[in-house]
Amino acid sequence: MADATTRPLPHPHRTLRHTLRAALPGSAWVVLPLALSALVFLYPLALVLHEALTGGGAGLDTGPALRVLGAHIFRTALTNTLRIALASTLGCLVIGFALAVVLSYVPFPGRSLALRLIETFIALPTFLVTLAFTFLYGSAGIVNETLMQATGAALPPLDFLYSSWGVILAEVTVYTPFVLRPLMAAFSTLDRAQIEVAASLGARAPMIVRRILLPAALPALMAGGSLCLLLTVNEFGIVLFIGAKGVITLPLLVYSKAIQEFDYPTACVVASANLVLSVGLYALYRAMVGRMGGGHADLV
């Protein structure tokens, strides 16, 4: 080589330190996170399940658990949770898909601003929307005040906020960005020439949406939808802030049993049931993401 006079370099991996480092497999890194997870996640969760299955007693006793699961309040909370989650998810999918199509294929000034505004909500707390909705649609909110002044009505004409509908509207707002994001990604990989070719063959917008965009978006819709389902089943802040008497969901039931009634055994049973439901939905989400071809199933 250029100068043969320079001494040869020391060979790498020569020192003892290097030898040890080389002998240590990379997977040793897993010890720290695994220990942390076991201590602050698995162990506490196992205790909750244990509590639920023993009813606070010593041996296995599913009696108390079954009583809780059979109780009217649990049944109501479960149906509420599922009803709200399904309705919200459906709303997120419809609005998310429509927004994604417009944001991807109908250029307009302020497009990126709109996208950023919507995506910002991913980083913001969920209850923010509920709080804002009370100012907007509450009994003394802007909309009702305006309507009452205009019509002279004595009672607020718009009365949906303190019901499941209020929760659903808030959840649709909060979770639509989670559907929008994978959809935008899916559309960005779709070859635009497909749309141009379809249009040149005489297809109009509805047909293009139905025959080209929808099939292309389907995996992302499934993934986003199952994520929505999981997040809405687990949602707590929105329901708490609405504070409607009739709207009790599973997470809210856990909270009220534990914090307001100090009934930990019941809270543990409800939490366990909620956990089974959530983990099932999470499995569904992973399966959908796997089908989408994405490697990792990170939420958010």
Partner: peptide, 20 residues
């Protein structure tokens, strides 16, 4: 396992830590 905490409702995480 490392993804699982995202599937658990936050209230349940709180309850579990409280119990533990």
């Amino acid at each position: 396992l490392f993804f699982l905490p995202s599937a658990v409702p936050s209230v349940s995480v709180g309850l579990a830590l409280l119990v533990a």
